[in-house]
Amino acid sequence: MRIDVSGLTKTYKGGARALDGLTLTVPTGMYGLLGSNGAGKTTFMRILAGLLRPTSGRVAIGGHDMATAEGRLAVQRTLGYLPQDLGVYPDLSARRFLDYIALLKGLHSRSARRRRIGELLEVVALSDVADRRLKGFSGGMLRRVGIAQALLADPRLLIVDEPTTGLDPEERIRFRTLLAQLAGDRTVLLSTHIVDDVAQTCRSLAVLAKGRLAFQGTVGDLVSHAYHRVWTVSTPGPAPVTGRVVSALPEGTGMRYRVVAAAPPDPRARPAEPTLEDGYLALMDG
């Protein structure tokens, strides 16, 4: 399902402009969405999920116009959505909660529902606690419940807003791999602050900044923003003052800094191979 967005603007009551003339095409497959806090990622995803009406602009998903009720309904029939601020009913068990959402998604056959929920509980490794009340679940466990509910109706379009926040490393890697496997002929839109998740799973991505499109292209394109701009500096003294320090590692009696800067930040600086994170920082620094 292709997502076509043009001139999308959202101004909240009170005047906050979360999206400002966003034009973007998201192809089938896994697609990353990066951006700093308040860049408008969640707002964008909520509009795509039909939860929020844009102030102006057009959104078409798989040819369905999201401005019409029929269009939204058609999209929601094939949508899996994991909100950033995920909530659950604390008095239901994981299994019953998933059963309720499955019913709302139109899975009316009880046996099919039971089977699907069993499979997904397996996938998110919650089978053992499936009949415990959600009240007692940890943050990471709740996130996995959220992931399971998004996958319930075998969605053609998956919109996941920071799905791996709060997951342990093992679970995070397992989940992002699962998303990548699911992608295939589906569209998976992944918003995250963990740049490595995008680097490991997406071919293409977009970067939002203050509600505008700052970048759209492949992972390689974004990495290339940092070519000749990443340096390592080993020094016993203070950190370099120019450029942005990406990492600082103790080394012998001094420190080894990794710096993104347009010019060598220090006479001792040596060029380094850029990563996606470096490309992202280079883009943000302009």
């Binding site: 949508l79 909100p83 601020d85």
Partner: peptide, 18 residues
Amino acid sequence: VLRVDGILDATPSGRTAR
């Protein structure tokens, strides 16, 4: 209050019916 509305509203179930 429980922030379940995001998930519910993204289903094709319809707010009025719910």
